[in-house]
Design a protein around this nucleic acid. Structure first.
Lengths: 208, 208
DNA sequence: TGACAATGAATGAACGTTCATTCATTAGTG
DNA sequence: CACTAATGAATGAACGTTCATTCATTGTCA
């Protein structure tokens, strides 16, 4: 548990967001009541309104946190010593050790919410575009870019990576009792398979 | 618009389901009220309860309809003259001409619901497994199966196909104003790209 | 130091609204 | 008339939000 901040107000905010994340993942945005969140956080209902204007603000704040997290993952991928390892980082970002399966349930619900809430849609679109640009750039700069099969462009490969990644995330909500380790193993396998398809040869043979 | 049935009771049922689908896609399951559905269908609230036990039953019935639709798509894919064409059918099944973008919004919400409603989860899991088995079989039986790159198994390829497909579906909710034709074009492109990655050669060169 | 004032974090009952569901009633049909 | 289809006002539970109130902490001053 991270002793995240010296500011007690910020700590409260994060405590509320942590509780909200658990509730949202368990029940979804619109089935989660403010009472649920307050109970999960061990505080009173009213207190939430000291730190957030309303329920929508809680959802937005969490979407923002998700945005930061994705940016962080991209940064780590950018620093990876090889493109394959960058792939693996991107494919396993949601396999955090604690709270297994919470992230995927949340993200799927976030996309569903984006489908009807334009504000959330803008935010998710923004994250998606930034991530896509980052990975496109990552591929274009890599030494492997010279060996791309056929006339596939870096952008097309990035799109495929994200499609596969999102698709696995979506499937994940169907198997809630898989452990983080199992998920990581499985998704790493996906990354390797995609890699093999893209760069004709064993992974070790192409690493920089 | 299909004049689906001679039985007026069944017709009412379908009228309600059609209206519910529109509402669910627009607002999501839990933000859609029974009044919304009745207004969309042009009937009274109480009448819905003559044909469905409660709101959950409406959701389940629609998930069942989705199941039937997927099975139908699989059957069409099975009858396709080549594996590539089967791919294209699978990748574009949700690009129906009327009601653009309705399907993807609905399906993403369906998965989100599956994440918390075990009954829905069972149903979706069942559809997913059947579809996966069908496509695995499709690949294994195809003449191209002998040219699979590296040690990739038909099952792994099927998993990748569905991951890509689900991922695109998820992305789709972010661009609600794309037309069906644009979506079809884009997703066909995805199918072709995946095809090229899988079977090293131009599509035309490998068709049976 | 000790007494008192001010602060604002925290509470939870109360309010107005929305919603799923029911049911007494009406319309339609044979 | 008898029977079913259809209506929509009524019900009660649940929800988001507000706010009067409590109380531990901090600041002030003699």
């Amino acid at each position: 548990m991270p002793v995240s901040s010296l500011d007690p107000a910020l700590e409260r905010r994060e405590q509320i967001l942590r509780a909200a994340m658990i509730c949202f993942a368990k029940r979804g945005f619109h089935q989660t009541s403010m009472h649920d969140i307050s109970a999960e956080a061990g505080i009173s209902v009213g207190l939430i309104y000291r730190y957030f204007e309303n329920k929508d603000a809680v959802i937005s704040a969490m979407a923002e946190e998700h945005k930061r997290e994705i940016h962080e993952v991209l940064e780590r991928a950018r620093l990876a010593p090889s493109l394959l390892e960058a792939f693996e980082i991107i494919f396993t970002w949601d396999c955090c050790d604690n709270a297994p399966h919470v992230v995927s349930a949340f993200v799927v619900d976030l996309f569903a919410e984006a489908g009807r809430n334009p504000g959330v849609a803008d935010l998710v679109r923004d994250v998606a575009r930034t991530a896509m640009d980052g990975v496109t750039d990552l591929i274009a700069r890599s030494p492997e870019a010279n060996h791309l099969p056929y006339d596939l462009q870096p952008r097309e490969i990035a799109e495929m990576i994200f499609a596969v990644n999102d698709g696995m995330l979506m499937r994940d909500v169907l198997t809630p009792n898989r452990t983080s380790a199992e998920r990581r193993e499985r998704q790493t396998q996906f990354a390797r398979n995609l890699w093999r398809l893209l760069f004709s040869g064993k992974p070790e043979a192409v690493c920089a």
